[in-house]
Every structure is written in C-alpha cells, then in structure tokens.
Amino acid sequence: MSLNTKIDTETIERISGVNTRKCMKCGKCSATCPAFHEMDFHPHQFVAMVEKGDIEPLMKSKSIWNCLTCFACVQRCPRDVEPAKLVEAIRQAVIRQAGENHLKAEQIPEMLDSELPQQAIVSAFRKYKK
C-alpha cells in the first residue's frame, strides 16, 4: 500500500491546534532546533508549507523522524505558533496509515544494550509506531 498524501492545511491545523498564519517568519524556531542539521525541512518551513498546503514533501521528509520533541521551538517561538505540533501531526498522519510504521518491534533486540532504559523503547514506539 502506498502513502496517502492527500491531507489539507485545515486537517493538520485541526489536529495540531496550530494557526500557521500567526507566524512572523523570524526563523527563531529553526535557529534553536537541536536537530537542524539532520533535517531536510526545518521547523519554520513546516509552518510555511502547511500554510500553503504543501504537505506531501513534509510527510515524506526525514525531519518527522529526526525531531527530538524537545519543545525548544515551542518554548521560544515569539508568536506562540509552536511548530513542533505540526511535526507531530504530520508524523501521525503518516504512521496512522497501514504499513507506515517507522520502527518495528522486530528491530528492537539488535538495538538493545544492557544500559538502555525501558523509557527509550516506549518513547520510540510512541513516536515511530502506531
């Protein structure tokens, strides 16, 4: 089954609770993002692209998996736009579809080391798997 990318601005804004039109394009969210260099689209681009309805590239991006959910962009946005909520909504729009889990239980055993806390596994499943 292939990924359905027909999702509009309104749906993502409703799920995330974000109003993209509040953004003043200052770029502070991307400047503070600790995963900036590991992202193909940056937090401020999520805001601009969702506003335009250009959502398909975001659904196929590396950024939705590399966001650390650190809430730095949420805390530091001067306009309360809270870009990480868009990243989360789009990530969920992907993993909620059949066959789109980003992490499978079978992959876990080879990643384990004796120190890894359970918390890491449950958190990763929440982010990467329906």
Binding site: L68, L103, A124, K127
Partner: peptide, 19 residues
C-alpha cells in the same frame, strides 16, 4: 536545558551522540 537526544538513540544514533 538543551536536549540530550532523548529517544533518538533508537532512530539516529549519531544525532543522539552529537547532542
């Protein structure tokens, strides 16, 4: 008060190491 890398250790180990 900056991120340690969190659960990224299971997705992109290098990013977790960098953080």
């Amino acid at each position: 008060n900056e991120c340690c890398g969190g659960y990224m250790t299971l997705n992109d180990k290098e990013l977790a190491q960098k953080r």
